[in-house]
């Protein structure tokens, strides 16, 4: 039933917003459409205002940094011949500025029709830029500020694009994949100068569990059990 509903929504969205059918897909009972940054505001306006779609609520905005997507710390495919390396190698795959590094993901909800839609926009340039949707949904205001703070996505036309979660005077965008987990500066109180000072971070980066990608499909053997004894 959910599938049919999503298909209906997909058709509606494609026809009302003049999108090619290939731009939408249904995976795991969730509908995703992909948009170009240039058509974002016009399409979003239709998604909210159209009485048959009525995506009146803005649930979430997330940014994904695809810099290290699919890159694992350990090579596992060839290991039966060569064995695992002992440590996690760093520095590889630090490629910069490839097209479509960032994706901004919107989650919208219709309270009237009880359906959700995910809108994905890939951004190309550095700094990544996108028009704001906060005039359409006021709720987007803080979500965009957060995305700017953590990923450095510039939302053009945003009324008040300030940092929101990081400290006053913070430098950098900490959730990007090339920003180290341990950070870049640390603060401490200096008794001689009688003030708090910032210094380069002294923590040694350490990976406890390496990231590995294994292509076994044992997971499909796991079926829900005793489903109908309730």
């Amino acid at each position: 039933m959910l599938q049919e509903k999503l298909k209906l929504l997909a058709n509606l969205v494609n026809s009302r917003c003049n999108l090619p059918a290939a731009s939408s897909r249904i995976e795991r009972e969730e509908l995703t459409i992909e948009l170009e940054p240039t058509s974002l505001v016009a399409t979003m306006n239709i998604l909210k205002a159209d009485q048959d779609i009525a995506l009146t609520q803005f649930s979430d905005l997330a940014v994904v940094d695809y810099l290290k997507y699919g890159v694992s710390d350990w090579e596992t495919k060839e290991t039966s011949r060569s064995g695992f390396s002992r440590a996690v190698s760093r520095g590889k795959a630090d490629q910069q500025d490839f097209p479509k590094r960032f994706a901004v993901v919107y989650h919208l909800l219709s309270i009237r029709y009880n359906w959700r839609l995910r809108v994905k926009v890939y951004l190309q340039s550095e700094p990544p830029k996108l028009p704001t949707v906060s005039p359409i949904w006021p709720a987007a205001n803080w979500f965009e500020r957060e995305a700017f703070d953590l990923f450095g996505v510039m939302f053009e036309g945003h009324p008040d694009l300030r940092r929101i979660l990081t400290d006053y005077g913070f430098v950098g965008h900490p959730f990007r994949k090339d920003f180290p987990l341990e950070g870049k500066v640390e603060v401490r109180y200096d008794p001689d100068q009688k003030r708090v000072v910032s210094e380069p971070v002294s923590i040694e980066p350490r990976t406890l569990v390496p990231k590995v990608i294994r292509e076994e499909d044992w997971l499909h053997s796991s079926k829900p059990k005793d489903k109908d004894d309730a």
Partner: peptide
């Protein structure tokens, strides 16, 4: 919102907190 690239760790995890939207109002 969870994105996986097939690894043993999440590629991206985004938490949508109710209070965040409430406080923005």
């Amino acid at each position: 919102y969870l994105v996986s690239d097939g690894a043993n760790k999440p590629y991206r995890l985004k938490v949508r907190a109710a209070g965040f939207a409430h406080l923005s109002a």
